[in-house]
Design a protein around this nucleic acid. Sequence first.
DNA 1: CTGAAAGCGCTTACAG
DNA 2: CTGAAAGCGCTTACAG
Lengths: 359, 359
Amino acid sequence: MLDKYTTLIKIESGYIMNQQTFDSVSEKVTIDHVAAYCGFSKATVSRVINREGSVKPATEAKVREAIEKLGYSPNNAASALSGGRTKTIAVFLPDVKTEYYATLLTGLEEVAEKQFFNIIIKTQNNKKALLDLAINNRVDAFILRNNGLKPFDNDVLVTLQRRGIPVVFIGKPPTESDSHAILIDNVGGARLMAHHYAQHGFKRILFIAGPKDNLDSNDRLYGFKMGLSEMSAEVEALDVVYGDFLRESGYEAAKQSLETKTYDAIFAASDHMALGAILYCRGKGIRVPDDIAITGFDDTFFSEFLDPPLTTVHQPMQEIGSIAMETVLRILEQRDPRFQKIILPTQLQIRQSCGCAHV
Amino acid sequence: MLDKYTTLIKIESGYIMNQQTFDSVSEKVTIDHVAAYCGFSKATVSRVINREGSVKPATEAKVREAIEKLGYSPNNAASALSGGRTKTIAVFLPDVKTEYYATLLTGLEEVAEKQFFNIIIKTQNNKKALLDLAINNRVDAFILRNNGLKPFDNDVLVTLQRRGIPVVFIGKPPTESDSHAILIDNVGGARLMAHHYAQHGFKRILFIAGPKDNLDSNDRLYGFKMGLSEMSAEVEALDVVYGDFLRESGYEAAKQSLETKTYDAIFAASDHMALGAILYCRGKGIRVPDDIAITGFDDTFFSEFLDPPLTTVHQPMQEIGSIAMETVLRILEQRDPRFQKIILPTQLQIRQSCGCAHV
DNA sequence: CTGAAAGCGCTTACAG
DNA sequence: CTGAAAGCGCTTACAG
């Protein structure tokens, strides 16, 4: 032990060893080193690191000084193996490429990095992989995004619960129960859009929805109808076609619908589908917004730069990510999260594709 | 041991235990279990898992059967701690939000997932964090994206090398040495763009570059000039302004330059800057491409949907990611990667912003 | 409030 | 080709 300790000191001060200069940060410092350095046992060192609270302030101070001095940071694998924290969070996302999820991930990453947590991302809803992470204690908690289509296996959720592994959902959780979830106000955003539609006086409206039983899409339609009726809008037609949130399906939906019927406006449940509809109109020489208004939902990066710039419902994507991560970390620290479900506000982003003039 | 083994069998067949039904996948199976099941020692089991090759085929078969039967998968923390594989790769990216990196990450993720490797992503070029991952054996290898501005500390690289941890760079590595790198053909792509410019007969050209000493940007300018001279283009002016690859800087560059001078065409070193330039022109009533041609580099998602659709140089972003990951895994498996440096081709993507007609 | 000791689940010399 | 044993760096009862 003394040997190790002596060695350590040398390294720390950057001495020459074996004909090579070692940098303090480039060599392994273990809990034994800091224990030796401060004169307490490694159990005690472990306790101050894990904030067990049962350590005398004076000794805590000495331990912390040693940690600082030696540049010690715990080996996560060892902690994990002995049942402690892994300091890593598993994140399951449908993909990582569409701007929506990329931005979400940015929010997640940002706060994780700040708290010295690692993120492991998985893009396949793979039951085996998920369980593996949980069972082997590779991960302290999960953040799950349910894409609204194939929900997570219930027995997976049960396993996590039985093992006491915290889970935070992004979007509606598969079971109502007592799961934590970060949601956005789909209903409210669509409702605002409806109010705006009423002001424009649109009478024949096409709603391009997401997949038929997608919860987000359904909420948006629900809110839209609610808003329309609140304004006693004299709607002659409110037709609904189903897409899959992607551009291509928006194009197809517009094509199908506009070939047989005319509308004053299209409200798409995603900006990508709105883009598809705009592209269809552009190809057909139908002018937006002069001949038809087209609006979306999401306010993704490109919406602002479309021609015409897209009127849409803004949702705080990055914030969803950062709040989800904060919630998870708060649960892990036993600081009871203040809310079980957090609903983030959406807001109407008026640009020109609805027919409003450029200001 | 027998006890454990018996228990295991019960679980495996889904028996009722302690008034609760256990699912085989939801309980922990260790190397001891499979050793007991197949009658060999755990050392042997470990050997077949790690493909040490020194195992008799007959026993390997039995071990594999046991593994399969019990649904065993090794505990990564334990492997890591005892000096083995962690089955996780660290990925350092400047960000994860811009489409460029999001797509890269998708490629990375895709092949990692397929090979049952985990990815830990970091978006801060944080020396401490990087070393931590390496020193604590949290990670088998690194994939590093040098953003061309603040290169990775050389002593970090030295540390990795000394520990024998494989590193693959995306983009030019900071030191030429013998590092693995996945590159794209910046020079070739820009050269093709120059040829196209020559065909259009553009004489007064503005090049909106990236940061002054950014390698990608410099290569693009180099290739562009090369292409121009190859065609003996009669260029009256080739001015260069520097941006930072982002939209705003493209806008500013266009503003500065077009206020004092007129150009036939602008070639921006990124699509985002090209977008900025287009936005500036749109605001000023300068028609693209009628009054001025504007082209970019990257072929990001939105380029196709701009008005006019952007002529640009396509680079295979997702492929860069997947090849980088494949290269890393190949190195880890000791299968010598076929190439030290891999340069992926770029190609000219002609759309309308250069003045070519819609076909 | 603190320490000695066992144990987490692997891998890897070392024998044979 | 295979096994017994030590050890990786922590955490956590259990004592005191």
